[in-house]
Amino acid sequence: MAYKAQYYPGATSVAANRRKHMSGDLEKLREVSDEDLTACLGHRAAGSDYPSTHPPLAEMGEPACTVREAVTATPGAKAGDRVRYVQFADSMYNAPATPYFRSYHAAINYRGVDPGTLSGRQVVEARERDMEEVAKEQLETEMTCPGLAGLRGCTVHGHSCRLQEDGVMFDMLDRRRLENGTIIQDKDQVGVPIDRKVDLGKPMSEAEAAKRTTFYRVDNVAFKDDKEVVEWVHRVWELRTRYGFQPKN
C-alpha cells in the first residue's frame, strides 16, 4: 500500500485546514494576473524580464558533481534569477493562514525556497520566478483572505490589532483598502505607489473566515477542543524533554 502523508492530527475544522495548507490541496478562490502580482511585489517593473545575478546554468559549464546531477535546478536557478522575497502578514482575527502554515506550505510543496517564520509575518526567499510561483498560489487560494492578510515587505504592524470597522486588517501604510466591496491595492509591499489599482478580490465574510482559518481561538475552535492535537503536542514535548535531559555523571 502506498504511503499517504499524514500532515497534522485533529478532527476539527482548524486541523483539517492545517492539513490542506501543508499538503497544498487548496481551493482557488480568485485570479491575480502575473503583471498585477509583479507590481504588488515591487521587485521589478511589471512586464519586464527577470534580471539575473549569474548566466543560465546551461551556459556556465558546471563542475562534475554528483549532487548537482542528482538535484534538478529550479527554473529560477536555471535562469540565474536574483533571490527576492515575498512577505505576508495575517490577522489574528481568523485569517486563513498563520505564519507557520505559510512556511509549511512553501517548504513542503516547493523546492529552492527559504521560508522565515516570525510572530506576525512570514517571508519566503527564493529565486525570483520561483518566489512568484509561491506568492501567486498563496494569494489566489484559500490560504489568503485579502481583507485579513496582506503583502507587507515592511511595517507589518496590524496582525494583532483589532480589525477596522469595515472588517479589514489595519495597515499603517494603507497599501490596500476596501473599495466597493473588494480589496484594492495601489502600493507595493513596501508602500511605494504603483501605476495601477490591483483588485485582490472580495474579503471573506466573518463566517467564511471562521470556517477557513488555521487559528485556534477560544471564540471559534479552541485548541483544547482538539483532543488529538493536544495529545500529540504533549507527546512531542515529552519526548523532546526526555531527549534533552542528559545527566553528565
Binding site: C161, L173, D174, V190, G191, P193
Partner: peptide, 22 residues
C-alpha cells in the same frame, strides 16, 4: 490607537508619502 504616519519610515520606501485614507 495605532499611528497613521505621514511618511514611510522604514524599508526601501522610506520617505514616500503615505496619504492614509483614515
Amino acid at each position: 490607537g495605532p499611528r497613521l504616519p505621514r511618511k514611510v519610515s522604514a524599508g526601501p520606501g522610506t520617505g514616500e508619502d503615505v496619504r492614509h485614507t483614515a
